[in-house]
Simulated assay, not measured.
Amino acid sequence: MKSLSSLGTGLGYGARAARHKLAIVAVAAMATLPAQAQDATVTIAALGDSLTQGYGLPPEEGFVPQLANWLAANGHEGVEVLNAGVSGDTTAGGLSRIGWTLTDDVDGVIVALGGNDLLRGIDPANSRSNLEAILAEVTGRGLPVLLAGMIAPGNYGPEFKRDFDAMYPELADRYDAVYYPFFLQGLGMGTDPGAAADLMQPDGIHPNAEGVAAMVADIGPFVAELVERARD
Rank of each mutant, 00 (worst) to 15 (best):
S3I: 06
S6E: 12
G8R: 11
G10N: 09
A15V: 15
V25G: 12
A26R: 12
A26H: 08
A31P: 08
D39F: 08
V42F: 02
A45Q: 14
D49T: 00
Q53G: 05
Q53R: 11
G56L: 04
G56W: 06
L57W: 04
L57Q: 04
P58T: 14
P59A: 15
E61A: 12
E61W: 03
A72I: 10
A73T: 15
E77I: 03
L82H: 07
A92R: 11
G99V: 07
W100G: 02
L102K: 00
L102Q: 03
L102N: 02
D104M: 07
D107F: 01
V109L: 06
V109G: 09
I110A: 08
D117I: 01
L119A: 11
R120H: 09
I122L: 14
D123K: 05
S127F: 03
R128N: 14
S129R: 15
N130G: 07
V138N: 00
G140P: 13
G142F: 06
V145W: 03
I151T: 13
G154K: 14
N155R: 09
P158N: 14
A166G: 00
P169W: 07
P169H: 13
L171M: 09
A172D: 04
R174H: 01
Y175P: 06
D176W: 01
A177Q: 08
P181T: 12
F182T: 05
F182R: 15
F183K: 09
Q185S: 12
Q185Y: 08
L187S: 07
G188Q: 14
G190E: 04
D192R: 15
M200I: 13
G204V: 03
N208L: 09
V212S: 02
A213H: 10
M215D: 00
V216T: 15
A217I: 02
A217N: 13
A217S: 13
D218Q: 14
F222W: 12
E225I: 11
V227M: 10
V227Q: 10
D232T: 09
